[in-house]
Amino acid sequence: MVRELMKDTVFLAQKAQPATADDIPTADDLLDTLRAHADGCVGMAANMIGVNKAIIVFDDEGTLREMFNPEIVYRKGLYLTEEGCLSLQGQRKTKRHKTIKVQWQDREMHTHIKNFTGWTAQIIQHEVDHCNGIII
């Protein structure tokens, strides 16, 4: 189900609670909402649809992916960029890393670890910031 976007910065600034298998419907709603905003959005976190859980979805070079409880465990290659967000107006400067290693769980709660680079790494970093209550 496509959900309304959360724009309350007080809510968005909260650190997300751990996600469980009970939160799969939230991931489904996130994917539906991302698809509905595909013309201007490449990633979303659960707090962007009003759910304070650590779940992100993103476009990984044309394939939509989801991560439960994502954690960046390694970063390399710091650079400065500008980003926008559906929950906020305008663009803001931020620092990102060219390469990251992420640990997360899938919807069966199996743990994965993978390296990501470039644009996909930037998207993941933005969405993990959302999970940590960091507003960009």
Rank of each mutant, 00 (worst) to 15 (best):
E4P: 04
E4A: 09
M6T: 15
D8P: 10
T9M: 13
T9F: 07
V10F: 03
V10D: 10
F11D: 08
A13V: 06
A16F: 06
A19G: 07
T20W: 12
T20R: 03
A21W: 07
P25C: 08
T26Q: 07
A27L: 14
L30G: 05
L30K: 10
L31W: 03
D32G: 07
L34I: 00
L34C: 00
R35P: 01
A36F: 04
A36R: 02
H37F: 04
A38R: 00
A38L: 01
D39W: 00
G40N: 00
M44D: 01
A45I: 08
N47F: 08
M48P: 04
G50V: 11
G50I: 13
N52Q: 14
K53V: 11
A54R: 15
A54L: 04
I55R: 02
I55G: 11
I56T: 07
V57H: 03
F58R: 00
D59P: 09
L64T: 11
E66G: 14
M67Q: 14
M67H: 06
E71L: 02
V73Q: 02
K76W: 11
L78S: 10
Y79H: 15
Y79Q: 14
T81S: 14
T81L: 05
G84W: 00
G84Y: 00
L86Y: 02
L86N: 02
Q89R: 04
G90P: 03
Q91V: 08
Q91R: 14
T94C: 10
K95Y: 13
R96N: 06
R96V: 09
H97I: 06
K98F: 12
T99S: 07
I100Y: 05
K101P: 03
V102K: 06
V102R: 09
D106P: 12
D106E: 13
E108A: 14
E108H: 15
H110W: 03
T111R: 12
K114W: 00
F116V: 00
T117M: 05
T117P: 01
G118D: 15
G118I: 07
W119S: 05
T120V: 15
T120L: 11
Q122I: 06
Q125M: 11
H126P: 08
V128N: 01
V128C: 00
D129K: 04
D129G: 05
H130V: 05
C131K: 05
N132Y: 12
N132F: 04
G133N: 13
I134W: 02
